[in-house]
């Protein structure tokens, strides 16, 4: 296993479409709920412990070879917002393209055939990690980290926030990312034997309603 492969997959410049999504930050900025670095930090913390915990567990379970179809259904059930389901599938499709070009693997081909319009992104991420020779912990780290780094990058653009402040937010969240990842891997191992119902289902109400509001805007910078 190559540690450097993790850096390739986790790199914010990995060309998988993430740059066009704010992870809900654009809606929260418009609602006046993110105004500065401290409110960005609380937003990211909330996202990490809800949607982040869910996607990290899904990614880890996919990396452990749990059935991707079942995981995709579990992701659907945990994503009531149709705007967020559409964004997750779009990002899954884009990640699939990048992953197949980067780490060609029959499992990725099979998933692409099964979901031509895209599986949920964390499911694809877990299989991409497998294809890259990485493990469940690596997949969970990628998922949990991009769940907070995406909004932080977006808020730098949306509020012209000092990029050093945004990066410091990510550094302060690092110990919590570690804990979320550990929990995700533990529960993913259980999901492999007990089924996806044991996966976490934590939700953040304003992320869902915010995503639905965002989807109705005629003018916006980010796709979600």
């Amino acid at each position: 296993m190559s540690r450097a492969a993790l850096l390739v997959l986790a790199d914010g410049r990995f060309p998988a479409g993430g740059h066009a999504h704010s992870g809900g930050a654009e809606a929260a900025v418009r609602a006046g709920r993110i105004t500065d670095a401290p409110s960005l930090e609380e937003f990211c913390r909330g996202r990490l412990h809800t949607g982040g915990a869910v996607t990290a567990a899904l990614a880890a379970a996919a990396a452990l070879d749990a059935d991707p179809g079942e995981l995709d259904r579990a992701a659907d059930a945990r994503t009531p917002s149709p705007a967020l389901r559409a964004a997750a599938r779009r990002l899954g499709r884009q990640l699939m393209r990048a992953a197949r070009a980067t780490w060609p693997h029959p499992e990725l081909d099979a998933l692409a055939r099964r979901f031509p319009k895209g599986a949920h992104q964390p499911v694809v991420l877990g299989l991409a990690a497998r294809a890259a020779g990485l493990g469940p912990e690596d997949a969970a780290y990628c998922s949990a980290y991009e769940g907070v780094s995406g909004p932080a990058t977006a808020v730098v653009r949306l509020l012209s926030l000092d990029p050093f402040d945004a990066t410091a937010v990510l550094a302060r969240l690092a110990p919590e990312v570690d804990r979320v990842v550990q929990d995700a891997v533990d529960v993913a191992r259980r999901a492999v034997s007990e089924g996806p119902d044991v996966l976490p289902a934590r939700s953040a109400p304003l992320l869902e309603t915010g995503a639905e509001a965002h989807a109705t805007w005629p003018v916006r910078l980010f796709a979600s």
């Binding site: 409110s39 990211c44 909330g46 953040a204 304003l206």
Partner: peptide, 12 residues
């Protein structure tokens, strides 16, 4: 509860 529950993503 896990952090951020009352923040801009949770209940604000």
């Amino acid at each position: 509860a896990p952090g951020g529950w009352d923040g801009p993503a949770g209940l604000a």
